[in-house]
């Protein structure tokens, strides 16, 4: 308990930064991932290929490498210069956000796409036969059904995203993952310090997992 209370100045901002990183990259990756999914189900082969290429490349690259690229290599291309950010923290945080969003979007895209694919073709054909427009079909027939298949795996993806924010520890972004590295300077026990961090994640992740399980169960019966 002492390790936590004596170092609240590390733990407080660390946990807050983790939550903030998570929320921003969650919104970002959901938006980008959905756009990518639209590409992947588009009726134009060219657009589909673009979406597929992106997903294949990103899904097979380690997130640590994506972080490495954005922190160390990307500035060399001089598209955005690090000096244009007000503080050092702002630059490294944006690099981390870019890595998390671009990486997670590929997984969000796959979840959305496989969700849409679970809707039987007959459903769409029937709605077209009834004379529904494309928008009406999406809004009242396909999406409500796809949503049930999308939400549980999407929650897994988001849980993974939350945990992945800790990789930023190696890339000068202060968050829960980097608390322990700072603790050792203060001569505190790293093990106990890390156990508190682990507990923090268990407390955040467990309710999400339980909710995911219950949704999965409830909706699998309804189908």
């Amino acid at each position: 308990m002492d390790v936590l209370l004596d170092n609240l100045d590390l733990y407080g901002p660390g946990f807050l930064n983790t939550v903030e990183l998570f929320l921003i990259s969650a919104v970002g990756s959901l938006v980008l991932g959905t756009l990518l999914a639209m590409l992947r189900v588009a009726p134009v082969p060219m657009l589909r290929a673009t979406g597929t290429a992106y997903v294949t490349l990103i899904r097979n690259t380690p997130l640590t490498l994506v972080f490495f690229f954005f922190t160390f290599a990307f500035p060399l291309l001089e598209i955005v210069t690090p000096a244009s950010f007000g503080s050092a923290a702002a630059y490294y945080r944006n690099a981390a956000l870019a890595a998390l969003i671009l990486y997670t979007a590929a997984f969000v895209c796959e979840v959305v796409r496989s969700g849409i694919n679970t809707v039987p073709v007959g459903q769409a054909e029937a709605s077209r036969a009834l004379g529904l427009t494309f928008g009406q079909m999406l809004a009242s027939v396909v999406l409500p059904q796809a949503g049930r298949a999308v939400v549980p795996p999407m929650m897994s993806t988001m849980i993974a995203l939350l945990k992945n924010t800790t990789i930023a520890a190696g890339f000068s972004v202060f968050q829960a993952g980097s608390i322990s590295l700072n603790l050792s300077d203060r001569g505190e026990s790293q093990l106990i310090g890390l156990l508190w961090i682990a507990l923090f994640f268990v407390v955040l992740v467990t309710p999400m997992t339980l909710l995911q399980r219950s949704l999965e169960k409830r909706w699998s019966i309804a189908r």
Binding site: K163, N164, T165, T166, I167, A169, A176, G177, S180, L181, Q190, L191, L194, L195, I197, A198, F201, V202, V205, T206, T209
Partner: peptide, 12 residues
């Protein structure tokens, strides 16, 4: 073990 981030485990 599913709830704890891999980075935290590796550090631990």
């Amino acid at each position: 073990f599913r709830a704890i981030p891999l980075v935290v485990m590796i550090f631990m």
